[in-house]
Amino acid sequence: MIEIRWHSRAGQGAVTGAKGLGTVVATTGKQVQAYALYGSAKRGAAMNAYNRIDDEPITNHETKMNPDYVLVIDPALAFTDDITKNDKPTTKYIITTNLSKEELISQIPALQDKADRVYTVDAIQISLDTIGRSMPNTPILGALMKVSGMYDLDFFLDNMKKVLSKFPQKIIDANMEAITRAYNEVK
């Protein structure tokens, strides 16, 4: 079982990202869950989304998880959310930020004994450059593919194209570029 927790703001596409990831993973015969914890959340409110991935049908409906990966797609939430909540000694963190990894870790005490498991990527800037607006959900998945080694980049891109197929070609292309850049730039 792989468990992934997203830290996001409502409107940044974490739910779409989690469902997109689930859809790609399901094409490889695996079982998935993609869900979010939000109620009457308005755009900008902090929220969590979640993925579970396993070879067997997933029957655990507990919201809480002990994540293998924590994806922080809003830079400020790394400081204000409890991003290490319920973590494990092996949990890996992928955080969107414009700071260097060293600068970021020096400002977040909870990460200081986990430096070897922290990865950074500026998913906000990448999405601004490619998609033209702040939409860090797809680039963070590129970074996840690199850090986790879950799938190789070409396979993931091909399948994400299908997930995004209802969008105009220009938007699909921009997302592909964003995923590729994050894959290459995550440190």
Partner: peptide, 9 residues
């Protein structure tokens, strides 16, 4: 939410 908003296979 637990079922209505949770995507699964």
């Amino acid at each position: 939410f637990t079922t209505s908003h949770k995507a699964q296979n």
